[in-house]
Amino acid sequence: MQVQVKLFAFFREGRFKEEGRELADNTMVGQVVDDLGIDREEVGVLMINSRHCQFETVLQQNDILAIFPVIGGG
């Protein structure tokens, strides 16, 4: 299945801003994070289609997955 992956802040360094990826059915979010070489400890927020999700959430065809480090402001 096809999933769009977006990275933010320093997760972009040496990787990409946005990329389409072909994934096996039933792939979990955490698997994508691991495959990108991102330390799970550094992940602050995960969203699928603008809703927060977990490492264990199973991706669906055409999902947009956004991966953020721990960030804040205000």
Partner: peptide, 21 residues
């Protein structure tokens, strides 16, 4: 880690995450 991100991107680091949400 929030302090570290603030020192790199400033508070404006929020544009993309609030937009995504």
């Amino acid at each position: 880690p929030v302090s570290q991100a603030l020192g790199t991107y400033g508070t404006n680091v929020l544009v993309n995450i609030i937009n995504e949400a």
